[in-house]
Amino acid sequence: MTQLPQSTAKKLGLVIDLDTCVGCHACVTSCKGWNTENYGVPLSDDDAYGANPIGTFLNRVHSFEVQPEATGGCGSSAQTVHFPKSCLHCDDAPCVTVCPTGASYKRQEDGIVLVDEDACMGCGLCAWACPYGARELDSDSGVMKKCTLCVDRIYNENLPEEDRQPACVRTCPAGARHFGDFADPESNVSKLVEERGGFELMPEQGTKPVNRYLPPRKKDSWDSANNNVLPLNAISQEPKGFLKWLDSALGKV
């Protein structure tokens, strides 16, 4: 089933706000927790208490530093950006088309890219094909693991309506993760992308990711001389003048 659908009715995915993410890794462990108990086989951890612990995670948070080109003023400080990354549920998902067994597929109804673990032979080719590192071959079970967009939560009738969203979105303390339908221009995610200039990762790879990232807002504008804040005007340089001002000011109170 590794032919990609011509189009999908919905395009479900995430918006991740890089201006708000504090890099707390909450989305990482809640994802790990949910997916260890739910969809497919558990996510394994090898050598969990040993010298080289290595486990499967479907969502990982990187931290980058960005050094703006110095532009006059007091120079520009480096910025830290926390950067969560999971599957982007690409429209032109190369991971799907390379899969020989048909285990990888993109759902017609909502565009979620999934692995049917019962069909996966663990060749790893799809992980090679994904530019984003969104797939990890689980060493215990030998099958490919990836973000399911919590397909077993978002429609789950055993969950209260308000909980039918991905585990990582539900848990994010800063509210930096948003879930919704990008096919609907009125959805929360479409609007956020519109308002904040949401972008794709590595567009040159031609994968047409569904997930979008919101850029950090402009920072450190007070470092440069051409900011528009003026310093305060002094009413007095010394206490005497100040107390005089005070008397007049108090008269008004």
């Binding site: 890089l18 990187h62 931290s63 980058f64 530093e65 960005v66 050094q67 703006p68 080109e69 520009s76 910025q79 830290t80 950006v81 950067f83 972008f199 794709e200 990762l201 590595m202 567009p203 040159e204 990232y213 850029p215 950090p216």
Partner: peptide, 14 residues
């Protein structure tokens, strides 16, 4: 391009 942060400046892993 991987991070989309190029418009701010040069990116390195922290």
């Amino acid at each position: 391009t991987a991070t989309g942060l190029g418009s701010i400046g040069k990116v390195r892993l922290f």
